[in-house]
Deep mutational scan, measured.
Amino acid sequence: CHSECLGNCSQPDDPTKCVACRNFYLDGRCVETCPPPYYHFQDWRCVNFSFCQDLHHKCKNSRRQGCHQYVIHNNKCIPECPSGYTMNSSNLLCTPCLGPCPKVCHLLEGEKTIDSVTSAQELRGCTVINGSLIINIRGGNNLAAELEANLGLIEEISGYLKIRRSYALVSLSFFRKLRLIRGETLEIGNYSFYALDNQNLRQLWDWSKHNLTITQGKLFFHYNPKLCLSEIHKMEEVSGTKGRQERNDIALKTNGDQASCENELLKFSYIRTSFDKILLRWEPYWPPDFRDLLGFMLFYKEAPYQNVTEFDGQDACGSNSWTVVDIDPPLRSNDPKSQNHPGWLMRGLKPWTQYAIFVKTLVTFSDERRTYGAKSDIIYVQTDATNPSVPLDPISVSNSSSQIILKWKPPSDPNGNITHYLVFWERQAEDSELFELDYCLKGLKLPSRTWSPPFESEDSQKHNQSEYEDSAGECCSCPKTDSQILKELEESSFRKTFEDYLHNVVFVPRKT
Rank of each mutant, 00 (worst) to 15 (best):
D315M: 10
T127D: 09
K218M: 06
N211E: 09
L107C: 14
V308R: 08
R176C: 14
L108I: 08
S260M: 06
Y194A: 14
R176W: 09
K277W: 14
L406R: 00
N307F: 13
R179T: 13
L266E: 01
R347V: 05
L161Y: 03
L151Q: 01
K103D: 02
V381T: 12
G159I: 01
D249Y: 07
W408H: 00
W352P: 00
I232T: 14
Y191F: 12
Y300I: 10
L279H: 14
L201M: 05
M297A: 02
L169A: 14
S269P: 00
P284F: 04
Q354C: 15
E122P: 02
H106A: 06
N136K: 05
R138D: 03
N224K: 02
D115A: 14
G189V: 14
A303R: 07
S171K: 11
D377K: 12
F290I: 06
I214A: 05
G313T: 08
E122V: 06
I250V: 15
Q121C: 02
F193A: 05
K267C: 06
Y191E: 11
A195M: 06
G189E: 15
C126K: 03
G159A: 12
K409F: 05
N141H: 15
T361R: 01
N320T: 15
E246L: 10
Q339G: 11
K234E: 15
L107S: 11
N320W: 09
Y167H: 03
G110Y: 10
A149R: 11
C228R: 00
N200W: 04
L178Q: 02
R179A: 12
T113N: 04
F275M: 08
F358R: 05
V324G: 01
G256S: 09
W352E: 04
T185C: 08
N190V: 14
G373T: 04
L266R: 01
I404A: 00
L108F: 12
L186S: 13
K301C: 04
N340Q: 14
G295P: 02
I188M: 06
N211H: 10
G373P: 05
A195H: 07
T113M: 13
N263T: 11
G110K: 05
G217T: 01
S400K: 14
L266F: 03
E231K: 10
S398Y: 04
L392N: 12
D292S: 04
R247E: 02
E302V: 07
N255T: 06
F311G: 09
L294A: 03
M297K: 08
D384R: 03
P394D: 06
Q382S: 05
L345S: 07
L227M: 15
Q354G: 11
C126P: 00
S260G: 01
F221W: 03
E122R: 15
S116H: 06
D393A: 15
G295R: 03
K350V: 03
W282V: 01
E231N: 07
R332T: 11
R247V: 11
